Computed example of a mutant assay.
Amino acid sequence: MPIHNKLVRDKIAAILEEKQLSYTTKKLQNHTYKQELLKKLKEECREYRATDNNEEAAEELADILEVDLA
């Protein structure tokens, strides 16, 4: 099973449960959470820069906004 140590959206756990996939979660302390949130923001910005069309760009910009509002 692959290991992904990163922040995920709330609905990801429900999606994994629906697909009967195994996962674990961990609640982070404020300092660690802020570090991981910055990593997630950088990831979303990289994905935005890699888009090829306006539809993909809009989706990635929405992801950036969601991270920013977290």
Results as ranks from 00 to 15, higher is better:
Met1Gln: 10
Ile3Lys: 12
His4Arg: 11
Asn5Trp: 05
Leu7Tyr: 06
Val8Leu: 07
Arg9Cys: 08
Asp10Glu: 09
Asp10Phe: 08
Ala13Trp: 01
Leu16Arg: 02
Glu17Met: 01
Glu17Gln: 10
Glu18Ala: 07
Glu18Pro: 00
Glu18Ser: 09
Lys19Ala: 07
Ser22Tyr: 07
Tyr23Glu: 03
Lys26Ile: 11
Leu28Ala: 02
Leu28Ser: 04
Gln29Ala: 11
Tyr33His: 07
Gln35Met: 06
Leu37Glu: 03
Leu38Cys: 00
Lys39Glu: 08
Lys39Cys: 04
Lys39Arg: 12
Leu41Cys: 00
Lys42Phe: 06
Glu44Met: 05
Glu44Ile: 01
Cys45Val: 14
Glu47Asp: 09
Tyr48Leu: 15
Arg49His: 15
Ala50Lys: 14
Ala50Gly: 11
Thr51Gly: 11
Asp52Gly: 15
Asp52Lys: 15
Asp52Gln: 14
Asp52Phe: 09
Asp52Ala: 04
Asn54Ile: 12
Glu55Gly: 00
Glu55Trp: 12
Ala57Phe: 08
Ala57Leu: 14
Glu59Arg: 14
Glu59Pro: 13
Glu60Ser: 09
Glu60Met: 07
Ile64Tyr: 05
Leu65Asp: 08
Glu66Cys: 11
Glu66Asn: 15
Glu66Val: 03
Val67His: 06
Val67Met: 08
Ala70Gly: 11
Ala70Trp: 11
